[in-house]
Design a protein around this nucleic acid. Structure first.
Length: 306
RNA sequence: GCCGAGGUAGCUCAGUGGUAGAGCGCGGCCCUGAAAAGGCCGGCGUGGGGGGUCCGAUUCCCUCCCUCGGCA
């Protein structure tokens, strides 16, 4: 049989992990997390990281690989993930990617262009310019002039992307639009199967609310206090749950307000995840209730053995 | 029961004699080294019910219902 790499993705709280556990045990897979926040050590409750017992039953990779004081990003993920796949095949197991970070899924699947690492000095300079509306507009104009394709594609208000494109342009001398064509990911090396869990919207939102409540019940505040005492990296500090509780800890909002915002921000996030996966025509949709992971695992199993 | 304030979008509320907006929510979309981030687009409405004035009423008048506050 051809070497197959399997992906189980979907919005947060859609039941990915539970379905993945069942499938992994059934087919002898090892799980590679595809989550931009679960890479951080100590961020366990906020990220709903797989439990110790799940991790004892099935090997999990790319969890707890950096301290939350360190920056992690899509390119690091791309490199880390590729290595894991090799190892797992070497052991005669099946690599099973599980997670909902869209960019990381696509980085693993289709790759990212190399050779244009982030240049912080350049970036800072651009951000300084972008601080004023005229400055931001000027940056976009500058991009459009030298890389019309990128200028057209990237909205002037999307400062972050305007700057990344300029950074690539200035540091490599080539437009990001050209560079972006050079991608090489797992889909070119192996057969890949992508499944996306998608419960009814109403159920999903209800589960998100429940998940937030469950986090508080299992000690979220304590974990968050501990984490926020550290000099968190920019990336880790953006975790939903940390940013809202930080405001509460600083006395700038009530606990209920923080809790409400966590639920709201998570819903928005889930919605964006769905949009991301919808545009990938390779994904196979599983519109199953999240509460029935066995059913989802069963369906995936059947699809795989066809 | 009387007096006062008010009933407009899912919520909070603007506004106008020419069939209505804002914020939030909600929905859709974009995304290539911050991605749980960042950005774009969309009003989704029997204007509490009924009647009247008017060419025309959400707006003015009458009446009823409901909510809130005060007095009994």
């Amino acid at each position: 049989m051809n070497k197959k790499v399997i992906f189980i993705t979907g919005p947060t709280a859609s039941g990915k992990s539970a379905a993945a556990m069942i499938l992994a045990e059934r087919i002898g897979a090892e799980i590679i997390s595809c989550d931009s926040m679960q890479v951080y050590k100590g961020m366990d409750i906020v990220t709903s990281k797989p439990s110790a017992s799940d991790r004892a039953r099935v090997p999990h990779h790319l969890l707890d690989i950096v301290p939350p004081t360190e920056e992690y990003n899509a390119f690091r993920y791309y490199e880390d993930a590729a290595g894991k796949v090799e190892d797992i095949f070497m052991r005669g197991k099946v690599p099973l990617f599980v997670g909902g970070t869209g960019l990381y899924v696509s980085a693993a699947l289709d790759g990212l262009f190399a050779c244009a690492p982030e240049r912080s000095s350049l970036r800072e300079e651009f951000y300084r310019q972008a601080a004023s509306p005229e400055g931001a507009a000027a940056l976009h104009a500058r991009l459009s002039e030298r890389d019309p394709a990128a200028g057209k594609r990237i909205h002037p208000n999307d400062v972050r992307r305007v700057i990344r494109a300029l950074e690539v342009l200035v540091s490599t001398g080539e437009p990001i639009s050209d560079r972006q064509k050079e991608r090489k990911g797992l889909s070119e090396l192996y057969e890949t199967e992508i499944f996306c869990l998608s419960p009814e919207r109403e159920e999903l939102y209800r589960r998100i609310d429940e998940r937030v409540e469950a986090m508080f019940a299992s000690g979220l505040e304590k974990e968050a206090r501990g984490l926020l005492e550290m000099p968190l990296s920019r990336t880790a500090a953006f975790a939903i749950g940390l940013k809202e509780l930080k405001v509460y800890f600083e006395g700038r909002c009530a606990l209920d307000e923080a809790r409400r915002l966590m639920k709201l921000n998570t819903r928005h996030y889930a919605k964006r995840q769905l949009t991301w996966f919808r545009k990938d025509k390779r994904v196979r949709w599983l519109n199953r209730p999240a509460a029935l992971p066995e059913e989802a695992a069963e369906t995936i199993w059947k699809e795989l053995s066809r």
